[in-house]
């Protein structure tokens, strides 16, 4: 559980990070922020980046700001910062992110970039139609969350692009996220998030990306899931969990 050899670089600015990514493009560079997923994958040698570009020294990518009808969260903001910020569903959902030490190091942008299909940030971004603002050699662009996630660990992000911030609509609707795992802090077996205003649900753990459904009807959503029996978890159980969790999320979101 020791990583393969890599070179370490520290970026001092957003532009500097993009420059490093461009410059090192042939050497399989990878951005590191909190490192809560990447370092574990490197230790198992499942990820073998040739270069790590550390962006934690960039000082203008952290923080939460309400900007008219937008809520902007800097990519380097930690889960724990959001948890303590009193931001409705976003703060409440953070209790499901790993354990306290993970929330203290892990970042919002890192979670979005990692694109685990049960990750709370990916689900929240899809549910609330967040936009992912990224910076590349040609300048910055915004990608709708609905178009960002392509599969596990696979996103619309180009190799030389950096996630700068996540932009949520403001104010936030009545919404909630809930999960089930045998152990607290684990990746969810199934997770459900609901938005009562727009009557939509996002499910995690039922497909390769967060699944958006335009319904709050737990029975209907569960029945409509395209899930298969897997070792230790039948499709029936997964549907049952989805049904329960949608109901509970709706109850939690309801005033």
């Amino acid at each position: 559980m020791k990583p393969a050899s890599f070179e370490f670089h520290r970026a001092r600015s957003r532009a500097g990070a993009v420059e490093l990514l461009t410059e090192l493009a042939d050497g399989d560079p990878k951005i590191i922020a909190g490192g809560q997923s990447l370092v574990a994958m490197m230790n198992f040698r499942l990820a073998r980046p040739g270069h790590l570009v550390d962006i934690t020294g960039i000082d203008d990518m952290t923080g939460i700001e309400v900007d008219g009808d937008r809520l902007r969260i800097g990519a380097l903001t930690t889960h724990r910062t959001v948890e303590k910020a009193g931001l409705g569903v976003l703060s409440a959902a953070m209790r499901w992110v790993g354990h306290l030490p993970i929330r203290t190091r892990g970042t919002v942008g890192g979670s979005i970039a990692h694109a685990d299909a049960t990750a709370e940030w990916c689900m929240l971004a899809v549910l609330l139609d967040a936009r992912i603002r990224v910076l590349g050699p040609a300048g910055s662009r915004e990608i709708a969350a609905g178009e960002f996630f392509h599969g596990p660990f696979w996103t619309a992000l180009e190799p030389d692009e950096l996630i700068v911030e996540i932009v949520f609509p403001w104010p936030l609707p009545p919404a909630a996220l809930t999960e089930y795992a045998d152990r607290k802090g684990d990746f969810a077996l199934v997770a459900a998030a609901v938005d009562l205003d727009r009557e939509r649900t996002v499910l995690g753990g039922v497909g390769p990306v967060p699944l958006l459904v335009d319904s709050l009807d737990a029975e209907e959503i569960a029945a409509g899931l395209d899930v298969r029996d897997e070792p230790g978890v039948s499709a029936h159980y997964r549907r049952g969990l989805a049904r329960t969790l949608v109901r509970r999320a709706v109850a939690e979101a309801s005033p």
Binding site: F44, D182, R183, G185, F187
Partner: peptide, 14 residues
């Protein structure tokens, strides 16, 4: 089970 992700040792929470 090659890591604690798969081998579910309980934590203080459980």
């Amino acid at each position: 089970a090659a890591s604690f992700m798969e081998y579910k040792v309980p934590t203080a929470a459980e």
